[in-house]
Amino acid sequence: MTLLSIDWFFIIEKVLLISGVLVLSLVVAMYSTWGERKVAAWIQDRLGPNRAGFMGLLQPLADGGKLFFKEEIIPTNSNRFLFILGPSIAMLVACMTSAVIPWGDSLVIAGRTVSLQIADVNIGILFIFGVVSMGVYGIMIGGWASNNKYSLLASVRAASQIISYELPMGLALIALLMLTGSLSLKDIVEQQRHGLWNVVYQPLGFFIFLVCAFAECNRAPFDLPEAENELNGGYHLEYSSMKLGFFLFAEYINMFISSALISTMYFGGYAFPYMDKLGLDPNMVTILGFLALFVKTLLFIFFFMWVRWTVPRFRYDQLMRLGWKVMIPLALVNMLITGALVLARQH
């Protein structure tokens, strides 16, 4: 079925895949809010939400419905266009990152090989970096357009935090790329499928990446831009209704995506031990691989929450000192050692 030399199957396949990944990240983000509250409660010896539905499972729906029906306030002196653009960018950027993550190997459906990755671009990691740094714009524009000095200050803090931690994150990734020799996430996973997981070769790099992921997602102990319990909101101070919901929701999607990314780059992605020795149908192995990635991702999301309810927040100067004086030198040393080892192995 080739009409006007357009491969319609390809388009349908990709549209389905995109919708699937989008729905998956939204649902996971939704239930992360529930999970966050449950984990928080359990760590604090409480029960957590348990009234809406079984185990409180309908709680996210109730929260979402509430946010949609709340009064929408746009401050008179704000820039209306930018005010709406802010949360839109935050949400859009959060949803875009999932495009290059390989959610699984390929399925064979009716003789057609369908890759469970939306776009296997050969610059996958660069794409993610580009998109993630665009996320700062959502925060910056949102805080600036509010025409409120507190929002502006908070967004400046958020932006400088995210930019500061992007550097060691990138440096940690360079060390990983020296090892893999490819920017494509699919290649990175395939290498781990046939060898050891990258975390074995790059424990320090993984650690730096993890810490920076916390800072990038504005999660505790680096949640200064929001500081929910003492500042009244931070950069989204003036936001209400679903626009506020979008900012908060984008944070949870980011958490999901960075968990998936860490699992993909350092913990084998959809690869799991003995996956090629089970003697199962390739489609079955693909589905199991997807589940393996999903479980790894959920474990990292749990880790994010666990850290949040354990470690107190850094002071802003401590945050900056950690970023510039500890993380960047550490990442540089890691890069140097990796480079030396890679060279030594070549000779």
Binding site: V39, A41, I43, D45, R46, L47, W306, W309, T310
Partner: peptide
């Protein structure tokens, strides 16, 4: 904190 996940709840 991990230990507290499984402890008896006060609620």
């Amino acid at each position: 904190t991990f230990k507290h996940l499984f402890q008896k709840k006060a609620t």
